[in-house]
Simulated scan of single mutants.
Amino acid sequence: MIPTNSSTAATQVRPLAYKVEVSFNTVRLDDIEDGCLLSDCTADAMGSLSTLSTNGYLPWSINKQYRNFGGDGGHGGDSWWNATGEKYRYMDSGVSYNFAATRLCSGSTGTTCSGSDLKQNNKVILEVKPNSSIQVSAKIKDYDPGSDDDTLCNVSDSVGALSAVTLKDLNMSRTMAEEKGDSEYLDASCEVTYSLKTIGYVWPNS
């Protein structure tokens, strides 16, 4: 029997997954149409931001996380910076709003909140396995007490499949955009920016 050399037989331990920070950064609406005589109205905005990693799960929604604002719109409104709880946000055309500057709540769906809504709550940590994709979306509506709420923004993006090599040093910024003319149901043009960055690892038996 030939003895084995344990040092040469040992294999390199690799992460099971990578901790990726998804940061929802800014939103801008243009050419808002809200039933007023002129375009570029002020919107009474409520919305939901979401992200997930596919990770081979079926359904993928098991890994989905949300950041929500504005509730159902029926509790009055305030400025982007001062609005609390379920108050909708006043949003003007051509202004870039920072998600970190308004109060967002975590939720298990796009219409629920778990705990308090907080500023600086615009980041989500995903555990992403190699060869998975990261999906990001944003939906914003304009509250209308007399009829159905109008859609101002409905954008999504998918990054991947991401290899272990890519995930190791992942650091990128992305833009999701949709023009008002792209859909007859869209009452504004919309641009949402976000970023992805690997901040840690998930090791075997950790």
Rank of each mutant, 00 (worst) to 15 (best):
G70F: 00
S53V: 12
N55M: 09
E21W: 13
G71N: 14
L118A: 14
D149I: 02
T112Y: 13
R67C: 01
S156Y: 00
G160Y: 09
Y90I: 10
L126S: 10
A10V: 03
Q135Y: 06
T111R: 11
W203Y: 09
L52G: 11
E191P: 02
V22C: 03
A43G: 05
Y88L: 08
P59H: 01
N25L: 06
A17C: 07
I199K: 10
F69N: 05
G77C: 10
I125D: 14
D157N: 09
L29N: 02
E127K: 05
W203H: 06
S173W: 07
S158N: 09
N121D: 08
A161K: 14
H75W: 11
E191A: 15
M172Y: 15
I199Q: 09
M172R: 10
Q65W: 10
E178K: 15
A177N: 11
S61L: 03
E179N: 13
D44I: 00
G47T: 09
P145G: 12
Q12E: 03
G160N: 13
F24M: 08
A101I: 02
L170M: 07
V128L: 12
T198D: 02
D40W: 10
S106P: 08
T111D: 02
N68K: 11
D78H: 11
W203P: 00
R103A: 13
G94Y: 10
G115C: 06
A138L: 00
T26W: 14
A177H: 05
G200S: 05
N171I: 15
S137Q: 06
D150M: 05
Y185R: 06
S183R: 12
S6D: 04
Y97L: 04
N131S: 13
Q120S: 15
W60M: 07
S106A: 14
S23P: 00
M46V: 13
E127D: 14
G160I: 13
T151C: 15
S206E: 11
N55V: 12
S147Q: 05
P130G: 15
